[in-house]
Amino acid sequence: MEMPSLASRVSRAEREESEQFKQLVSFRIGEEEFGVDILVVQEIIRLPTITPLPNAQRFILGMINLRGKIIPVIDLRKRLRISGRKSNLNDRKTRVLIVEMQSSVTGFIVDSVSEVMRIPVNEIEPTPHLVVSNIESEYIKGVIKLPNRLVILLDFQQVLRPQEVREIQNAHINTIEGELLGSSPGIESVL
């Protein structure tokens, strides 16, 4: 997956979107094949050195240096709670999708990146009610049925959604604050 081809396709993708086509980057995690709108993928890189982020949620693997920018890297498998083997960070096929959304840049680790697909918008079917492959339906924008395979179109806005993440954290914080009720984090350091 080379950068230039991606970049050149992006502009075409923009034109084609109005023609009811969508360009997707398809990638694999375990047995599943996923797709993501090419417009949110800034680039695809090999796994760089990751600096672990202590005390973070378990799906945040750490920080990487992307040409001077520091961005977090998330293990998409853990994020989506896909069961099965752990992500193998030493696999030569492992890639990081750099996703740019709502002014934040995040890296997602996937097992491999397969291709760039051009799909007519009307072929994207809304999420079936049944849960696909144990993945919570809120992360899924739709599915694309191709001969012999099924591509799950991921909604990265949901995957990244800060509120949900906050909820997890708040749940944690609330219990702490409950115990500290009437006090504040400041007082100990104040007095």
């Binding site: 600096t51 982020l53 240096n65 992307l66 001077g68 920018k69 520091i70 993440v165």
Partner: peptide, 19 residues
Amino acid sequence: IKSIEDSAYDYEGFSGATI
């Protein structure tokens, strides 16, 4: 000091990062 290019998560305990 570099800010972390991501606003989705809180990074408690770290005021930033450096290269």
